[in-house]
């Protein structure tokens, strides 16, 4: 028994359209979730380092709570757990307007926000405390110090680990298929179901993810170069 490769299944029929559709949905959910994760990560990561305990407690709670529960559980939480808390009319509207997409986006964004928070906190803690003092001594408020000095420096320092987590976010977006988001992995499976060509479908999915990841890594490298702090990051060149 020899496996008969038939790569044309990927562009004949509906396969190509499905994969493209899946790719677009993967990009949409990942980009939105990434923005959410970045905002949550920066805010909570900064909050964890401020000299005011209640803020630190809130941010720590957020991070530990969301980081230590599997993403799959969060997917179900946002899809099954949250809608019943809303008025029936809102629920119906949501269910007719891609509730699964938004639930998946929130699950992914909030979960990765907690991970991003850790990265940003580590970045902030690696900045000498005296930088903060110097800024405060000039009369800047704590908020201004974070906005103008601490966070901008931290963001430049954390590009490599943040890239890593961004790639994880992209790959984790496939978990959204558990709540019926028809993203890339879903569509690859669909192709497999329709064509019974598992290896071709699997390969197509893999190659698309690979290209996306390499693309993101390339963009992030450029970002790192562009915003490198002279003298601080050697490979910024």
């Amino acid at each position: 028994m020899n496996y008969q490769f038939n790569w044309s299944v990927l562009w004949s029929g509906q396969s190509g359209g499905w994969l493209l559709h899946g790719l677009l949905l993967t990009l949409a959910i990942s980009v939105l979730a990434w923005v959410l994760a970045a905002v949550l990560g920066i805010v909570s990561g900064a909050m964890r380092t401020v000299p005011w305990k209640p803020l630190r407690v809130i941010a720590t709670f957020y991070v530990e709570f969301f980081r230590n529960v599997p993403l799959l559980v969060w997917m179900f939480f946002w899809y099954f757990g949250v809608p019943p808390l809303l008025p029936r009319v809102v629920q119906d509207w949501l269910f007719n307007h891609s509730a699964e997409f938004w639930a998946g986006m929130f699950a992914l964004g909030v979960y990765h926000g907690a991970r991003m928070s850790e990265i940003i906190r580590a970045g902030i803690l690696s900045i000498p405390r005296t930088q903060f003092e110097a800024a405060v001594a000039m009369g800047l408020t704590t908020f201004q110090v974070y906005r103008l000095i601490i966070v901008p420096i931290a963001l430049r320092l954390i590009v490599p680990p943040a890239t890593n987590d961004s790639l994880n976010l992209l790959k984790n977006s496939s978990v959204a298929l558990t709540i019926s988001v028809a993203e890339l992995t879903f569509q690859a499976r669909q192709v497999e179901t329709y064509t019974a060509k598992a290896i071709e479908a699997l390969t197509a999915g893999t190659v698309i993810y690979l290209v996306l990841c390499l693309g993101i890594a390339a963009i992030m490298t450029r970002v790192e170069r562009r915003f490198a702090i002279p003298g601080l990051i050697a490979r910024g060149g």
Binding site: A137, M138, I153, P230
Partner: peptide, 18 residues
Amino acid sequence: ALRTRVGMVFQSFNLFPH
């Protein structure tokens, strides 16, 4: 407000590197 009227120079310069 007070700090705007009191300047300080540190041992480790503390210029903002970015």
